[in-house]
Design a protein around this nucleic acid. Structure first.
Lengths: 124, 124
DNA sequence: CCGCTTTGCTAAACATGTTAATTAAATTAC
DNA sequence: GTAATTTAATTAACATGTTTAGCAAAGCGG
């Protein structure tokens, strides 16, 4: 089990749940379509993950008052605590990967992946 | 749906099934642990994929005669035909991605991903 | 020769990715 | 004002990734 996954399993969240929580905590209140975009997830996958996070009482969902097609998602106190408890360690693990690879090469990898992503999109 | 996935769905195989078929066709007769290694798949995932390919009669599996823990996997005639029917088109699609990105950048991306993979392995 | 360890593969269970379809709500066009 | 279209989210179904556990077979050490 990877180091981040192992750390998160102690707080009973998966990597994808963590990524979604991070987006909600940093940019909330936020709508699901925007979370999906930010977290690079398809909506059906996100819906299921949000349902799990709601069940675990880490987020709160409510209907938008102006446009009732939409939802507003916010972090719950328990979710904020979980992030506070794990953020430093997860940043450190990511920094460890970046340092072992070398910051320049790490950035180059991210750039190339984004470029590939752009190629995928434009060929559809 | 991505171009390769779309093409393959006409032959009723998924991308992962295709990748496994390719390994079996190129390196068969071959054992599952080696397929898993070559195709970057975990064994339980591979076992299920092989079961599907066997069900579709695209491969044949039999017990190794010397070491009965092991299996030998071979391409079946229908599997060879499916590969023959799709190989040129899939290579062309991959070449299209490489050309749009530029061969140097494409190779750089593969190198950096392999390097990252090495970092993952050594930190466990 | 026997008990223990290792290896190869499978099964179960859960999470997530994906596609297609559906429902409800808003917008647009006439 | 109404019908058609678009948008936001969900559901269903299937495939696959992952972890854990289990079983059978082979290898190793004493």
């Amino acid at each position: 089990m990877g180091p981040i996954r192992s750390m998160l399993s102690k707080s009973d969240v998966t990597e994808q749940q963590w990524r979604v929580l991070r987006v909600v905590e940093e940019e909330g209140p936020i709508e699901p379509t925007r979370i999906a975009d930010q977290a690079c997830l398809l909506l059906p996958s996100l819906t299921r993950i949000l349902q799990k996070l709601e069940e675990k009482q880490l987020i709160v969902r409510e209907r938008d008052k102006v446009d009732r097609r939409k939802q507003v998602v916010q972090i719950a106190p328990a979710g904020a605590e979980l992030i506070a408890a794990n953020l430093a360690a997860s940043v450190e693990l990511m920094n460890g990967v970046r340092d072992r690879m070398g910051p320049d090469r790490y950035e180059a990898l991210l750039d190339l992946l984004n470029e590939l992503d752009g190629i995928d999109d434009s060929s559809r």
